[in-house]
């Protein structure tokens, strides 16, 4: 008989992460190509098309301004999809979680592993955007490579938030409200396609409560190698957000699996 020594916390988290990676890589072609195509389309469609009418923003061409902004959103979108539709399907339809918690695994392990996997996807998606914009010569500083770390944390923020949303949802179609009512406005209010200081002051301040703007601030700083003290606030926001929302989400989801 075995000695009774269940796997350690890190082994358990790693095994969950590994499972997600294996399933993701299984469809590497359909999963791996779009992250590179999307920024290309964005730069061509919005950057070059709209850019002709805009001129310069913050002393750089509009395409360059836009390029630094579009590194963060794919990390947001991929984590949001993964931890809403993906999580819901694993939870309710495929019952994959039931299988996992039948092994030597707790519910907390499941979701911590899942959040880290979403982070990894965010890192990959940010890397894809960064590669494309580098090819177009739109990167000013080698510091921009750190954007992929920001991408990792961006995705974790939206992973925990989306898990929290999932914990309230009983019908998969209700996620449409989350995407239309939250994710899309967040995209437009995060200083990606236009600088927020052109908005009325109250709207500019209001926008600060949303998560993505803090990622965009950090990424712009790395891309242009311009650092301000306010970035510490952005880092603080991101870390606090992940910890608090993550705690709440896992606590609520636990009750969906353990009754």
């Amino acid at each position: 008989m075995n000695e009774i020594s269940p796997p350690s916390f890190s082994q358990r988290i790693y095994s969950i992460w590994y499972r997600h990676i294996l399933v993701y890589v299984k469809n590497i072609f359909s999963n791996g190509i779009p992250p590179f195509l999307e920024p290309l389309l964005f730069l061509l469609g919005v950057g070059l098309g709209l850019g002709n009418f805009v001129g310069e923003i913050n002393n750089v061409s509009y395409v360059t301004y836009l390029a630094a902004g579009i590194i963060a959103p794919p990390a947001m979108f991929t984590a949001a999809y993964e931890c809403t539709f993906g999580t819901f399907i694993r939870l309710e339809f495929d019952k994959v979680y039931d299988g996992m918690v039948s092994a030597s695994m707790t519910v907390e392990d499941l979701f911590i592993g899942e959040i880290l996997f979403a982070g990894t996807k965010g890192l990959f998606f940010s890397f894809a955007v960064l590669s494309v914009i580098s090819i177009f010569g739109l990167i000013e500083s080698p510091m921009a490579v750190f954007c992929i770390i920001v991408g990792f944390f961006t995705a974790m923020m939206f992973a925990v938030l989306s898990l929290l949303v999932t914990s309230f949802v009983n019908n998969i179609n209700h996620f449409n409200f989350y995407f239309t009512g939250f994710i899309t406005p967040v995209f437009f209010l995060s200083g990606i396609v236009f600088p927020l200081n052109t908005l009325p002051k109250f709207l500019e301040l209001f926008a600060q409560i949303f998560p993505l703007i803090h990622s965009v601030n950090l990424m712009r700083a790395f891309c242009f190698n311009q650092f301000e003290l306010s970035l510490i606030g952005d880092i603080f926001y991101i870390i606090t957000f992940i910890l608090i929302i993550g705690f709440l989400a896992i606590k609520r989801l636990r009750h969906k699996i353990i009754t």
Binding site: S5, P6, P7, S8, Q11, R12, Y14, S15, I16, Y18, R19, L22, V23, K26, N27, D94, K95, V96, Y97, D98, G99, M100, A103, S104, M105
Partner: peptide, 22 residues
């Protein structure tokens, strides 16, 4: 009810599951 990863093979399912046991 079975709760396998339907996209993966029998072997991959078992390999992942053995990782869950460390």
């Amino acid at each position: 009810e079975d709760n396998f990863d339907v996209e993966l093979s029998v072997f991959q399912n078992l390999l992942i599951y053995s990782k869950f046991y460390g």
